Amino acid sequence: MSEYGTVLESGAVRFERLLPGPVERVWAYLTESDKRGTWLASGKLEPRVGGTVDLLFKHSQITSERPPERYREMNDNGWPSRGTVTRYEPMRALAMTWPGEGDASSEVTFELTPEGDRVRLVLTHRKLADKAEMANVSGGWHLHLGILEDRLAGDPPRGFWSRHAAIEADYAARYAKLPG
C-alpha cells in the first residue's frame, strides 16, 4: 500500500493506511480532542450528524519543527476551523465538512475496517476546487496520517515541516499530469 493519496475523480483524493489497532483506539484518535490534537487538530466534535466540529490546528502540538513563514500562525496561535458532522457511525465512519477558501467547503470522510490486530483507515477528501487545492490538501493529509501512524505505533512523530514543501511539490507534479 502506498503512502501516497490517489485521485478518485476530479476534486477527490483518497488515502489508505493500515494502522495499529484496535479500532476503538483509532476511533478515539479521530474523535477525542486530546488525541486528535497530537496528529491533526484539537477541538470539540459533537458526536452526531449535524453536530459542530471546532478544530484548532496548532502544529507546535504535533511537531517540534518550526514552520515556514506562510504557516507560522498555525504553529504559534493556532488556526481555527469550523465544520459540520455529516456522518457519524461509531467505530466505522466519521465525515465532516472542511472549510475552504471563501465560502467553499469540501468534505472529509474517515472509514475504519478492523483487519486482525490492525485497522484499515480510508480517508477520502471530496469537493476540492482545483489541482492546486488537491495538492495542498494531499500534502497535508500525507504528513498528518504519517504522524497518526507514528502515534498509534508509539514511535516518535516523523518530521512534518521538514518534509512539507517536497511532499506538496510532489503531489503538484503528480496532479499536473491529470486531464483538465
Rank of each mutant, 00 (worst) to 15 (best):
W79E: 09
H59E: 10
G102W: 01
L123R: 05
N136R: 15
G154R: 09
A173Q: 15
K177T: 15
L145H: 01
H164V: 01
L8V: 07
P99V: 10
T86F: 10
V108E: 04
E16C: 08
E69N: 13
E115I: 10
Q61H: 14
V26W: 05
S33M: 00
T38Y: 00
L56G: 11
V23P: 10
F110Y: 15
I62S: 05
V13L: 12
Y4R: 15
R66F: 06
R36T: 12
G43A: 10
A176M: 13
Q61N: 15
S106K: 07
V122E: 07
H164G: 00
F15H: 03
T113D: 07
L18P: 00
T109I: 04
N77T: 12
E133V: 13
P179F: 07
A169V: 05
G180A: 13
A129L: 08
P20I: 14
N136F: 14
T86S: 12
P68L: 01
L143D: 03
L145K: 00
R14Y: 08
L128Y: 09
T84G: 04
V108L: 10
I147M: 14
P156T: 04
D76Q: 13
T84Y: 00
G159H: 08
E16Y: 08
P114M: 02
A95G: 06
D150V: 09
T86L: 11
A41L: 08
A135K: 00
L30W: 03
E65Q: 15
R14G: 03
S2D: 15
R174S: 12
E111D: 15
S10E: 12
D170N: 11
W161P: 01
R174V: 11
A95C: 05
T52K: 11
G11Y: 01
F57P: 03
R92P: 09
S42N: 10
M134H: 04
R126E: 08
G146L: 13
G51Q: 06
K127Y: 15
S2K: 09
M74L: 10
I147R: 13
A129T: 06
E168W: 05
H164C: 02
Y4K: 14
G50M: 04
Y71I: 02
V53T: 14
E46Q: 13
V23Q: 08
L56I: 14
Y4M: 11
S162I: 00
